[in-house]
Simulated scan of single mutants.
Amino acid sequence: MKSIGILGGTFDPPHIGHLIIANDVCHAQQLDEVWFMPSYEPPHKESAAADTMDRVAMLERVTADNPLFKVETTEVNRLGKSFTFDTMKWLQEAHPDTSFYFIIGADMVENLPRWRHIEQLLEMVTFVGVNRKGYTINSHYAIRTMDVPLMEISSTAIKNRVRSEKTIKYMVPESVETYIKENRLYE
């Protein structure tokens, strides 16, 4: 049976923090792969600044050189708001020989009681909660917890830096920085 980590998010844009989380969880949990799953329209956030195809293209660039990373486009192909329960139900049916590990930040752990069909979702996936500055991982749900290097990098900060014409070098992989410049994203 394969063990696959799912790292969902808007990835607007993907940054070094996302890659560190995926890499650390992949190795610590002995996963076969980590699938980056961009949302089309996240249920808990406003819509993304970059369009879906740009966000997928940036993810494809950052995952291309790591054979353990893959881009999973189930949610962007579905269009509209996606809920984790619906997505994971579909993925389980499509990949019955796979155990899924859903990777979330400590901020999302606090919101688990509000997730759609959380009790059924807990039977479908193993949650892996990673630390995040300003949050603690306290939950009455069975969650594997992990410490990962804390990075004070966020997609919002990166977009703000681009708008202010500040450098984003080393905050995002070079391939993402080039893509943002070539496509004039976040200006």
Score class of each variant (00 low, 15 high):
Val125Trp: 02
Gly134Asp: 07
Val130Leu: 07
Ala106Cys: 10
Met146Thr: 05
Met124Ser: 05
Glu119Asp: 15
Thr126Trp: 06
Leu122Asn: 09
Asn131Tyr: 10
Ser139Glu: 03
Asn131Ser: 12
Ile118Tyr: 02
Val130Glu: 03
Arg114Tyr: 13
Asn138Phe: 08
Leu122Gln: 12
His117Tyr: 14
Val109Cys: 11
Arg144Asp: 08
Thr136Ile: 14
Ile137Cys: 08
Met146Pro: 00
Ala142Val: 09
Val128Ile: 13
Trp115Lys: 04
Arg114Glu: 15
Met108Thr: 13
Pro149Glu: 13
Tyr141Asp: 02
Gln120Glu: 14
Leu122His: 07
Leu150Ile: 13
Asp107Ser: 09
Asn131Trp: 07
Ile137Asn: 11
Val130Ser: 05
Leu122Thr: 06
Leu150Cys: 10
His117Lys: 13
Val109Asp: 00
Gly105Thr: 15
Thr145Tyr: 04
Val130Cys: 11
Arg116Asn: 10
Arg132Thr: 03
Arg144Ser: 08
Asn111Gln: 14
Glu123Trp: 02
Tyr135Glu: 02
Gly129Cys: 03
Glu119Thr: 10
Arg114Gly: 08
Ser139Asp: 04
Val148Ala: 11
Gly105Trp: 04
Ser139Ala: 03
Pro149Ile: 05
Asn138Lys: 13
Val130Gly: 04
Ala142Pro: 06
Asn138Val: 07
Arg132Trp: 09
Arg144Phe: 06
Thr136Pro: 00
Val130Lys: 02
Glu123Leu: 09
Tyr141Asn: 02
Leu121Glu: 00
Val148Gly: 08
Ala142Ser: 14
Asp107Ile: 15
Gln120His: 15
Asn111Leu: 13
Ala106Ser: 08
Ile137Leu: 15
Val109Ala: 11
Arg116Gln: 11
Met124Gln: 12
Arg132Met: 08
Ile143Ser: 14
Ala106Glu: 05
Val128Tyr: 00
Glu110Gln: 13
Asn111His: 10
Val128Trp: 00
Met108Asp: 08
Tyr141Arg: 05
Val148Tyr: 05
Ile118Cys: 02
Val130Trp: 01
Glu110Ala: 10
Arg132Ser: 04
Ile143Glu: 12
Glu119Trp: 04
Arg116Tyr: 11
Leu112Pro: 01
Lys133Val: 14
Met108Leu: 15
Asn111Trp: 07
Glu123Thr: 09
Arg144Trp: 05
Tyr135Asp: 00
Thr145His: 13
Pro149His: 11
Thr145Val: 13
Glu110Ile: 09
Trp115Val: 08
Pro113Thr: 10
Glu110His: 05
Leu150Ser: 11
Val148Leu: 12
Asn138Met: 13
Gly105Ser: 14
Val148Arg: 06
Leu122Cys: 15
Met124Glu: 02
Leu112Phe: 01
Trp115Leu: 09
Ile143Ala: 05
Val125His: 00
Met124Gly: 01
Glu123Phe: 03
Ile137Thr: 12
Phe127Glu: 00
Phe127Asp: 01
Glu123Cys: 04
Met108Ser: 14
Val125Ser: 00
Leu112Thr: 01
Thr126Lys: 14
Val128Thr: 01
Val130Met: 06
Thr145Glu: 12
Ser139Leu: 02
Met124His: 04
Gln120Gly: 06
Met108Lys: 14
Ala106Tyr: 01
Phe127Trp: 04
Arg132Pro: 04
Pro149Tyr: 14
